[in-house]
């Protein structure tokens, strides 16, 4: 187990280097850069721009630029954002926190809703209630997240039920931490529920299919044949085995939180990584793009690692081989 984790963490290094190298080359060889926009601005002299370029090391060849960036990366120095003029690390830290809170919220809620319903419906496969759930799940799967987000935003702006955009409305210095937390959660609710709604159908369907599949396995038949009580057959044998492939899904969902939430974050005005990456890419804010890419690659690999560790932990066939 320890070996597995160590091996995977070591694999992470060449993967991150390879990924960042390719991205760096692509960004730097695509037409236009951040300074091209600055040149349009008559208030900034060409000399200023040139000195900025030298400061950022951008007058050197691309490969040297990359190696410099990589060297700084090893010291966890992500560079400075052209647009914000503050370290990329500070920027990402704040935004990443918001994205992770959003992801954890939507992940927990959608799993807590989807899994029990899937077992409930899977056990009653083909009945009226199962068909209703399947229809709702189908709806959730087929609605695009931006559409649901727009609907929510429209609805909330009409009713003013919840605050929209940003993470806080309380700015008093003496506000209690509970009030601050409550305020944060209220802001989180709109994008969080949107993500839940989009996620829950697919999860339900996956879990239901897993459950039905394991419910029809020979070892479940054998458990019935041994006179094992119904609840044990369902929750011990069928459910436990049906959960196994879900660990991989969980890992994938953790790994994909940046991509999964981006559109929703932008539409709901949630200051997470999504809008940050979008702005950075549009304005060729090189180090910000690179920093975000490294973070998203890191999350992807760590997410999958978590999935693998969970499977290894819960499946003796992998744990003891």
């Amino acid at each position: 187990m320890k070996k597995l984790v160590l091996k995977r963490l070591l694999q992470l290094i060449p993967m991150l280097i390879g990924m960042s190298f390719v991205s760096f080359i692509i960004i730097q060889s695509s037409p236009g850069d951040y300074f091209a926009q600055m040149k349009m601005n008559p208030e900034i002299s060409p000399e200023t721009i040139e000195s900025m370029k030298v400061n950022f090391g951008l007058d050197r060849p691309i490969l040297v630029q990359y190696l410099l960036w990589l060297k700084n990366m090893c010291k966890l120095d992500f560079g400075v954002s052209f647009a914000y003029h503050i370290p990329v690390r500070t920027l990402i830290k704040f935004r990443l926190k918001n994205t992770i809170c959003l992801a954890i919220f939507s992940l927990v809620i959608s799993w807590v809703i989807a899994l029990p319903l899937a077992v409930f419906a899977g056990y009653r496969e083909g009945t009226f209630i199962d068909k209703i759930f399947s229809m709702l799940a189908y709806l959730s799967i087929s609605l695009p997240s931006f559409f649901v987000a727009l609907l929510f935003v429209y609805f909330i702006s009409k009713t003013n039920l919840l605050p929209l955009g940003g993470t806080r409305s309380i700015f008093e210095v003496d506000a209690s931490s509970f009030a601050l937390f409550k305020d944060y959660m209220e802001h989180l609710l709109v994008p969080g529920l949107v993500l839940c709604l989009v996620n829950v159908g697919g999860l339900f369907r996956l879990m239901k299919n897993n459950f039905i599949e394991t419910f029809n396995t020979p070892y479940v038949l054998a458990a019935w044949a041994r006179g094992v009580p119904r609840n044990s057959v369902i929750f011990k044998h069928a459910l436990r085995n049906a959960l196994n492939p879900m660990f991989t899904i969980l890992g994938m969902e953790i790994g994909g939180i940046l991509n999964g939430a981006a559109l929703t974050e932008i539409i709901c005005g949630w200051p997470g990584m999504g809008s940050l990456i979008l702005e950075a890419v549009l304005s060729h804010d090189l180090y910000l793009v690179m920093g975000s890419l490294v973070i998203s690659g890191f999350l992807l690999i760590v997410g999958n690692l978590i999935g693998d560790i969970l499977i290894a932990f819960f499946d003796p066939r992998i744990r003891i081989s």
């Binding site: 054998a222 044998h237 085995n241």
Partner: peptide, 15 residues
Amino acid sequence: SIIFQDPSAYLDPLF
């Protein structure tokens, strides 16, 4: 009680 054809498929792998 009953015994089946392929024992490996009739034992729950997780227990």
